[in-house]
């Protein structure tokens, strides 16, 4: 089954002569249970696509389908329980004045779910944190712990699709690996579908089976992970990107 199907997604900003294309005819689809990467340089529109799917942007044209249904036709409650998102900056994605308990309990209250305490404790244990963290505030946690809480919050509604907007780019390298392994484990356990945005090809190589390379708001090539090792991409830009990344890795 197709979990995410994006067809001809375009965004134009401005009118007349000042009209500027932000995204142009983006097409890709992600199978259920698959992890799909979006890579590209800064400003190539990766996060914008994510925000369109997350319904945080509403000015796009085209068609976005989740599990076969258009996002605009889905009842919002059901939508929330299908897709959740993990944001890039763990320092900005948790409310500074809400305890972890409040942050985790809010979605449960909104959706009137049962066994709230049990679910909250379970969610923290699943991301490798002690349930005692419930009474802490974000400023008492490290970046990695915050990102774990953000993942717990995204998963507490038991979504089947998770949108990940560079979830590790704000973290220390050693913590990055921990969070990436956690995400991989969670996907295997819960059979989640990931749409993973990153500009780090090594991270994408580790996390995703397939990826799309983006440049200037367009998908230039959709390829499988194997291509990253060989560098045999069809598109010249994709080839250049992979080559640059390989050289960088060697240099480091």
């Amino acid at each position: 089954m197709t979990a995410i199907d994006v067809r001809n997604l375009s965004i134009d900003l401005g009118y007349g002569l000042a009209k500027k294309r932000i995204l142009g005819d983006v097409c890709f689809s992600v199978e259920a249970g698959e992890s799909f990467g979006l890579v590209g340089e800064s400003g190539s529109g990766k996060s914008t696509i994510l925000r369109c799917i997350a319904r945080l942007l509403n000015v796009w044209e085209g068609d976005i389908r989740l599990e076969g249904r258009s996002v605009n036709d889905m009842p919002f409650v059901e939508y929330c329980r299908t897709v959740q998102m993990v944001f890039q900056d763990p320092y900005g994605s948790l409310h500074p004045r809400q305890s972890i308990r409040t942050a985790l309990q809010e979605p449960l209250r909104i959706h009137r779910m049962d066994r709230q305490v049990e679910r909250m404790e379970r969610a923290l244990i699943d991301v490798g944190l002690d349930p005692a963290f419930l009474s802490r505030y974000p400023h008492e946690l490290s970046g990695g712990q915050r990102q774990r809480v953000a993942i717990a919050r995204a998963l507490i509604l038991e979504p089947r699709i998770l949108l990940l907007d560079e979830p590790t780019s704000a973290l220390d390298v050693s913590v990055q690996a921990e969070v990436l392994n956690l995400l991989a484990d969670l996907r295997a356990k819960r059979n989640l579908t990931y749409l993973f945005v990153s500009h780090d090809l090594a991270v994408i190589d580790h996390m995703c089976e397939r990826l799309a390379v983006m440049q200037h708001g367009r998908v230039v090539e959709v390829m499988s992970r194997d291509v990253l090792a060989t560098g045999q991409a069809q598109d010249p830009y994709a080839r250049e990107l992979i080559q640059a990344s390989l050289e960088y890795d060697h240099a480091v």
Binding site: Q84, D89, S93, H95
Partner: peptide
């Protein structure tokens, strides 16, 4: 802010976001 986006994605109504966040 991302935490407002996050609570919107969790289905919080505008009133709830204004009062609670």
């Amino acid at each position: 802010a991302d935490y407002i986006s996050a609570s919107r994605m969790q289905g919080a109504s505008s009133l709830r976001i204004i009062i609670k966040s």
